[in-house]
Amino acid sequence: MAGKSGRTLSITQESSWKKAVFSWEGILILLFIAVNILCICISPNYNLKNVLREMPKYLTEVFLLLPMAYLLLLGEIDISVGASVCLSATMACMACNAGLPFPLVLLVGLAVGTLCGAVNGFILTRFTELPPMIVTLGTQIVFRGIAEITLGSGGSISLTNTKQFHAMAGKIGPVPYMFFVVILAAAIYMVVLGKTTFGRRVYAIGSNSLASYYAGIHVQKIRFFVFTLAGFMAGVSAIFLTSVLYGANTTTGNGFEMDAIAMAVFGGISTAGGKGKLLGAIISAFTIICLRIGLGQINMNPQVILVILGALLVLAVLLPNLAKKARSMGIMAKAA
């Protein structure tokens, strides 16, 4: 019964370089360049070699950013991942000090993180009416509490044998192994999100979970999986963090979850779900890391750096709104 009116639909999408440059990702790349120029100007020590040397401790947060972006796209949030990092790192250190073989030590770190994520996922998919913000606030306190109990009165643990973790922190030329792992993980996350049925379903659920459910998507299974994934990545982050710090203490991973959320939002991912690209989040992550390294090199007070980053974040979420307002005002002016 094809098209009674003979109407046909086009299936080609216009693309132009203007659109690419003026997309949020385009603006972020310009910002990334601008930040690097700024850092080179203010700090004589700001060069590729030094940046790569200082990068590892910041890179551990990017592992959390990747699943956090998935969660935000689903319209969810997980603020317990920082505490999961702490608990995973603590357990991995204990396993290492107990003399377990190194692969088993890594497995302990990953398993503890995954378990933390699975607990969040289980609670939130079992009781779907609970807000993820509050549930993960609760588990955050629980996870960190368990870590503190495990750490005991000293509040910290140091590796007695750093050999293998030290090997993990090795480099190829000037580039640390961790950098390659981060890039590989980011690439996988981007492809999965952009090119697979799973990624499409994540966007669908974040845009309209009810319609997705009616369309036959297993919404709760996907939610559970992504929360568990966030826990697993907290485990990954914990292992790499241990390879930098040779230990763990009660403040390990403190604020990591907020940094991850900030990087994602700065990268254009909406906390309301369904909107944004992982590419933007990754560019924004490296922009923020470069800015931190540059400002750190000129011995700027870390608290001042925080103020600058916070202000930038507010500005980033404000910008699209301001642009929209300006556009609608322009339309109104034209109409009048």
Partner: peptide, 14 residues
């Protein structure tokens, strides 16, 4: 495209 045309959707592109 084919299905939307089959139900005669008034739109320009998919």
């Amino acid at each position: 495209k084919q299905l939307l045309e089959e139900v005669d959707t008034k739109a320009i592109s998919v």
